[in-house]
């Protein structure tokens, strides 16, 4: 049903630390790997070994350059995936009820057997979080690894989204952002976490942590200008120049 739940019991989501993401794309690769075999149709590619390969991914890592008047320029790696918004515009536009937001944990999912592949949800999402599967012609999106986080066949340490498990720097965190005492909520509070495009009114659940302030080079006093050397060395310099 495409009505959004008034409230959800939990607000499961990710917190992504832009300070320490190194842009290795391990989260992208592990996401693609996990979602090619678990929930729903396998996440497909088109022309994978041809001249113009492309495929559906649920997570993409961009790199941005940030320059300012008074600080050093910074290169910030920026993972982008579904933010599991509280006011998810992708859900309400769905004509079939395939897109839905779960009342129990707030995860936004696509019931693929109901999806007609019209693509309207991908248009409605400001964040580009939904991609059409090139083989199955149904809409794919981040499931927050719903087939891992509740999966009792996995060891407890693996019951978190594949991208979080794969991140080698610990830049990705998973938890309940509706619970103010949870580790992720405290992290967001401590590090001044923010929403992407809050002006779009989507109320994202996922939060991003800003890069910490960088060290700045202290302004060292300029060196004294090197003048014409005098004495023996000066004579030597002039003599050699004349040769």
């Amino acid at each position: 049903m495409t009505d959004l739940p008034e409230t959800t019991d939990k607000k499961l989501g990710l917190v992504i630390d832009l300070d320490i993401c190194v842009g290795c794309h391990a989260c992208v690769t592990s996401c693609k790997e996990w979602n090619s075999q678990g929930y729903g149709a396998p996440l497909a590619d088109a022309d994978a070994y041809g001249p113009a390969p492309e495929g559906a991914f649920l997570n993409r890592v961009h790199s941005f350059e940030v320059t300012s008047e008074d600080g050093p320029p910074q290169l910030v790696h920026f993972p982008r995936s579904c933010l599991h918004c509280e006011d998810a515009p992708c859900v309400t536009v769905c004509p079939t009820g395939a897109s839905h937001k779960r009342a129990e944990d707030g995860i936004v999912l696509v019931e693929e057997s109901m999806c007609i592949g019209c693509g309207l949800c991908a248009w409605a999402c400001p964040y580009g979080a939904r991609e059409m599967d090139p083989a199955e012609q149904v809409m794919k999106k981040c499931t927050l690894c719903v087939d891992r986080i509740y999966n009792e066949n996995l060891p407890p340490e693996d019951r978190e989204p594949s991208c979080v498990r794969a991140c080698p720097t610990g830049a990705r965190h998973f938890g309940d952002l509706g619970d103010a005492s949870s580790a992720v909520s405290q992290l967001v509070a401590a590090r001044d976490g923010f929403d992407l495009m809050p002006e779009q009114g989507t109320k994202p659940v996922n939060k991003y942590l800003p890069p910490r302030e960088r060290d700045r080079a202290t302004a060292a006093p300029a060196l004294e200008p090197v003048g014409e050397a005098g004495g023996f060395l000066g004579w030597l310099d002039r003599a050699l120049s004349r040769l």
Partner: peptide
């Protein structure tokens, strides 16, 4: 990106 707070 939320990085507008740092710079361009």
């Amino acid at each position: 990106t939320g990085l507008g707070r740092i710079g361009r």
